[in-house]
Amino acid sequence: MVAPSKPVTSKPDEVKPEMGRTVRFTIHRCDGPGKAARWESFDVPIEPGSNIISVLQYIAAHPVTIEGKRTTPVVWDSGCLEEVCGACTMVINGRVRQSCSCLIDHIAPRNGDEVTLEPMSKFPVVRDLWVDRERLFYNLRRVKAWVPIDGTYDLGAGPTENPDKQETRYKLSTCMSCGCCLEACPQFNLEEDPEHWDSAFIGAHAISQARLFNEHETGKQLKRDRLDELMGPGGVSDCGNAQNCVKVCPKEIPLTESIGAMGRAVTIHSLARFFAGKK
């Protein structure tokens, strides 16, 4: 690959953000499960380098709507603010992403621009922009996303691994369970009853994690269990190949490749079971 010879500093077509501007934020709010939802708008003065988090922090300190009505600070989930923990995921202007990496300069460069914030729709709302993503983690349990080691005592080094494989696994392993792939997936839908979690679509993240652990020398031990789960209801065959997951993944994890790889694995797994009588 040839490196570009010219220094790249910014996109040429980018609108230069106006200084000292005010942007209107319209936020979907809900006081709790079963409570009525409402929209509230806030005008927020924008400092250079502002992101959605700093805007929400401003609103927390000045919770007054555009009608001049005093309200409560907006509730939202956040953590590292560096786009590695996955907590602050929400729907911004109709599209799911992390709010910490969403610079106001990029999405609302002009005075008077508007931005809407909504909670993710595929998980039950706890309050305002905060949703309960327990199902996402539950689905990792379904595919036994772990390496079954013998315990934490010192038993020497792990298996060696060639660098190519490490690169593949590392990429898959950067999944931060944010839920973007699930929010954008037409096959993954709101399911509030945990009783149904075992048979509802498991989602791209879990399929990709199954691949991650099937690729590991020791992780392979549980390969059959994982493939059985992926063959079953809500497994990899329930994927509709809309491929939204890979487009919204903030870590650019090759989720659709994982889906293809697991498709292949379950095909082989089932054939082996059929012809060789393997369990």
Partner: peptide, 24 residues
């Protein structure tokens, strides 16, 4: 039956693949 398990969202995610998903 399978088609009813999904919920199209091309309005929010108007990617070509997603259009094909809905069109399928």
């Amino acid at each position: 039956y399978y088609a009813t398990t999904g919920k199209s969202n091309v309005k929010r995610y108007p990617h070509q693949d997603n259009w094909r998903y809905s069109l399928q």
